[in-house]
């Protein structure tokens, strides 16, 4: 009994360590997905409602994902910080509605340097007449190396957050090129 215990204890310790290091994934963080220091010279005097779809929650056995509420919050934060629109509204009473659909997400399974590729579909609609002001596919990628994080799950999350940040930045810059 003592011998069995002595043999299994190291194995259990190793398993616990592996779970701690690799573990299972955590979702992309909304703050880390928000582009920082995004400079946009245009400031529309309108209110905006943001809607997101196509994202997924990060399950206990899954790799990191971007959830719809987190993507929405990251876009809203970026709009507020850049002052692209005057206000963000919830519900259906905004001057414009921005719909961002996560269309595809390509994540690596194994490796040292992780690159995540992302594509989103951005649609900006004027609420009063339902006219479409912008309809655009936005493609981005994000990379994280061993220098960023040792644990693979953390590195993947960082690459995912970088891809999302890049995507939001490109999308908002495309909106800023319009004349609303």
């Amino acid at each position: 009994m003592t011998t069995t215990l002595a043999r299994t204890t190291p194995l259990l310790a190793i398993a616990a360590l592996a779970l701690t290091l690799g573990g299972c994934a955590s979702p992309a963080d909304r703050t880390a997905m928000t582009p920082q220091n995004l400079t946009i010279s245009k400031h529309y005097p309108h209110s905006l409602r943001v809607q997101t779809s196509g994202g997924a929650e990060t399950g206990a056995m899954d790799s990191s994902n971007v959830s719809d509420p987190d993507l929405k919050a990251a876009i809203e934060d970026a709009v507020i910080q850049s002052k692209l629109f005057k206000t963000i509204v919830q519900g259906s009473n905004g001057d414009y509605e921005l719909s961002v659909r996560l269309s595809s997400l390509s994540k690596p399974l194994f490796g040292a340097t992780f690159t995540v590729d992302m594509e989103t579909a951005w649609t900006l609609t004027k609420t009063s007449d339902h006219s479409v002001a912008l309809r655009k596919s936005v493609k981005s990628s994000g990379t994280a190396t061993m220098g960023d994080a040792f644990a693979g799950v953390t590195r993947l999350r960082m690459a995912l957050e970088a891809a999302t940040r890049n995507n939001i930045e490109q999308g908002l810059k495309a909106v800023a090129e319009l004349n609303l």
Binding site: A15, A18, A25, S63, S103, F114, A121, R135, A151, G152
Partner: peptide, 26 residues
């Protein structure tokens, strides 16, 4: 220990099955 450390550092997490589909409202 080294082997498990290597696995933990190179893999991206556990695996699951999923099937999704989405269509743009327009």
């Amino acid at each position: 220990l080294a082997l498990l450390g290597l696995v933990a550092s190179l893999t991206t997490g556990c695996a699951v099955n999923r099937a999704t589909g989405s269509v743009d409202p327009s």
